[in-house]
Computed example of a mutant assay.
Amino acid sequence: MKKIFTLLAILLFLGANAQETVKPDYALIEKNIKDKNSPLYYNKLVERYNAADVSLTVEERRHLYYGFAVIDKPIDEVALKETENKLREALHKPSPTLADLDDVVRYTGTLLEAYPFSITMMQYRIYCLKALNRHDEAAKVREQSDIVIDAMLSSGDGNTPENCIHVIDVKNEYELVGILGFEPQGEEYMVSNKYNYVVINKNSYDLPGLFFDTTTAKTVTGLSNAVTGL
């Protein structure tokens, strides 16, 4: 978490050029992740992500995250909705047992198989794994969440529409806002029919809000937000 806050400070005060943030080129990403002879081949990236390989470079993390928008991913939405409902029930139990915590781990695992970049699902999973004294597994999920966060923050600092943060799912916007230590005010505006502007509460950075782009991913790839968290 310390690394994330440090990165935020750098992004805000040194600017995007210093960080060499780059918006995703989906056409190039699609070409690279389909090349079986490339280290950016998607199956290879997924294997390393599943192993929480922290040696993944920023470019590899970007291809993993943004590449998800351009791969074929059949989803049984009915089955996933049932799992979401079961997870919701487990999360709202007033006095959860160890068995309930284990259920949360199992349900979040199923949902993350469908959409592996839901920070919310990872946070539920980390909390329950720690409560079950499965700390090594919790640390692995934390490393995976850092990989996703690094990919998103590599696309922009969010200060302007031109240097917005690109995400492939709208819920990643609010997850990232919270992870960066901000609290959404509850207002969101569409700017230029393309950018989402999320207003945040008063903060020590005097930052009124952050700009995001989910439109490009949806337009270019037809990404469906089937499973993104509760």
Rank of each mutant, 00 (worst) to 15 (best):
108 T>P: 09
109 G>I: 09
113 E>H: 05
115 Y>T: 02
116 P>V: 14
116 P>S: 08
119 I>K: 09
119 I>Y: 09
121 M>N: 15
123 Q>L: 14
125 R>Q: 13
127 Y>D: 12
127 Y>R: 13
127 Y>Q: 09
128 C>M: 13
132 L>V: 06
136 D>V: 07
137 E>A: 13
140 K>S: 05
142 R>F: 04
145 S>Y: 02
146 D>W: 03
149 I>N: 05
149 I>P: 07
151 A>P: 06
155 S>D: 04
156 G>Q: 01
157 D>M: 00
157 D>G: 03
157 D>C: 06
158 G>W: 05
158 G>K: 02
159 N>Y: 01
161 P>D: 00
162 E>K: 09
164 C>N: 06
166 H>A: 08
167 V>K: 01
172 N>R: 13
173 E>L: 05
173 E>Y: 05
177 V>C: 11
177 V>M: 08
178 G>R: 14
179 I>Y: 11
179 I>D: 03
182 F>N: 02
184 P>N: 01
185 Q>G: 07
187 E>M: 12
190 M>Y: 04
190 M>G: 10
194 K>F: 04
195 Y>D: 09
200 I>Y: 07
203 N>H: 13
204 S>F: 12
205 Y>S: 14
206 D>S: 14
208 P>V: 03
209 G>P: 10
212 F>V: 04
213 D>P: 07
214 T>E: 13
214 T>S: 12
217 A>R: 01
217 A>H: 02
221 T>N: 12
224 S>Y: 06
224 S>F: 04
